[in-house]
Design a protein around this nucleic acid. Sequence first.
RNA 1: GGUCCGAUAGCUCAGUCGGUAGAGCAAAUGGCUUUUAACCAUUGGGUCGAAGGUUCGAGUCCUUCUCGGAUCACCA
Length: 652
Amino acid sequence: MNIPEFDEIIEPNDQTEARAHHLEALRELVGNVYPNKFERSKFTGEEDTITNLLHFSAVKQVVDEIKRHISTLNEGERPHPEEKEALNAELRTFGNVRVSGRLTTTPRTMGKAAFVHLSDGKNRIQIYVRKDDVKGISNGGQREGEATPNSPLPTPDFVDGWDLFKLLDGGDFIGVEGYLFLTNTGELSIHVETLQFLSKSLLPMPDKMHGIADPELQRRYRYADLIASSLQVEHEGLTTREVFERRAKLISGMRRYLDDAGYIEVETPMLSPKATGAAARPFETYHNALDIPLYARIAPELYLKRLTVGGFEKVYELNRNFRNEGLSQKHNPEFTMLEFYCAYMDVNGMMDFAEAMIKEAVMKANNGSLVVKYGENEIDFGKFERISMKEAIAKVISKDVEKYNSSDPDVWLEDEGFQRRILAHRELKTRAFNSLHVSGWSDEELEKNRIAAENKIESEKFELWEKTKLFEHSMPTAEEAGFRVPDSIWQISVDRIMRRAENLQEVKENGLVYLFEEFVESDLIQPTFIIDYPKSISPLSKASPTNPNIAERFELFINGMECANGFSELNDPREQYERFVDQMSAREGGDDEAMVLDEDYIRALAYGMPPAAGIGIGIDRLVMLLTNKHSIRDVILFPHMKPIVKVEQTEE
RNA sequence: GGUCCGAUAGCUCAGUCGGUAGAGCAAAUGGCUUUUAACCAUUGGGUCGAAGGUUCGAGUCCUUCUCGGAUCACCA
């Protein structure tokens, strides 16, 4: 095995070498450069982190007072000395504090004194160090094993504090003891009396103005990106740290809501012998001792429903699912899902409950507001619309309502001409660049205006749909259809439409979903429950009591993204068995994402499962909405990246 | 998988028509005892993502590859 040298991991350059030299000099000066602890004072009642200190009411009062004073001054004018000194006298009565943190910049030295900010990761406080009145703490020369319980370490000696200070680099950790005061500009600071070295940053800090700019490096070295959050002086939107704090708030808000509503949190297998409960390709692994293949779960659904059989009437799990599929801005191979089930509830009750829960969690994560700005859109979590899939379709392609004298797309789909239109639309849209020739764009222009062209295709999908009327009864020529493309190319499209038309049954079955995805989904910006899904694509869902072809199922769309999926759970073991059998035959037919039969689940249902409703909520996507992030990788701390390939050096 | 864009000093970025590799920050040295992205002076720092090609000459043009981003396709 090729074990890399330390120097290959931390490559030596003028930056790292300077820091390494400082570290050696510090070792000479203070002994142990990686001491085991630093005890912070408890002036605030809690441990005095920088954040606690800044939020402590007595300190805050003084800071507010000086701010108020400064606000009465002209731009750039300094606080009046008597105001400042009065407040400083007050601060002196608090006595000394001991705080610790990371140096956010290289120290600003001015001859025999210096300023630098310390960060606890969240907040910063300025410290002031003077050559004449700073003492350094020796960490002692002890190494492992030298200190024993019977002979505690002696009180550390003092070293020259200024010598110690001069060996610090931006990013180092130190602990300081000193008193609070206000500077000439009114900034709260600590006048340091003793200084202890705690840990070295061998690598330079990210740029203090720009942080880490490259999204690749942000994600690959998330720790450095998080450090940048605490250094950066200016930034647009939320810092990376704030994104993940908001994520945590949303999650804890949901947990709290469910706990308060009597739900119990459980953990079901992440590795299971059957990857089922959703339609997706799994990750596969192998257990040596058991000598069986295992799959990373694609959904916890079937395990959680087994628990409703077992008597957990309200149960939830909030954890990762794994799907071995392509990556996109909305898809990550592992993603966090909240799934919960409630006995004796149906789909309508679940929508009510989920809506209330999401509202509450959003409020908690979004500073008490239900409105978030996402890109160009403003999303209002205050009201969730409910509309059936068919109604949503009929609303956007309303001309067909008149033609067929019915607002039920299922009626339209009975018509062979309509089926052919769908085929034509699907085919022509995938060959959409052809359609742009209609507007007279040349190949070069298309290439040059690529993004504009793609937007045009998207925005003209309705016009394209109108044109497909021609296909209802025959296959028009390119000229008849208004496409300015060579006949030979046109013929290819028509041939494909014809070939597919041989199986119009397939269109009849999937046409509804196609129309929905094509014409409705991306325009569902405000929170909308789409209800009444076709039963055929909902193998775990109960049918509607009034319509056997409709599943009692909903999906929640926000900003065109599917954010949740729920239904009245199918609890008839025999029907569930038959649905699984249908799925398995679809699998045989080549659909390797069709659901896998779970025999033990059928057995569990046979013990009797109460009527219940369930839901899965995509947490990452909700976090994206709340943080105005457009890539799921920006709301996941350590998204998967391809490893960096080191180029082999040929000579030694 | 297709298409387009990007990769230059430790970091953030310039680099024109193919003609000696640039700035700010950071680093090193010196000065400065209340600064605010502190300031002033001096110095060092580069396999221009990798490999090949065209050329008298390539950061720049061409080909292939690597990584990333965007987008389409696939996919809940």
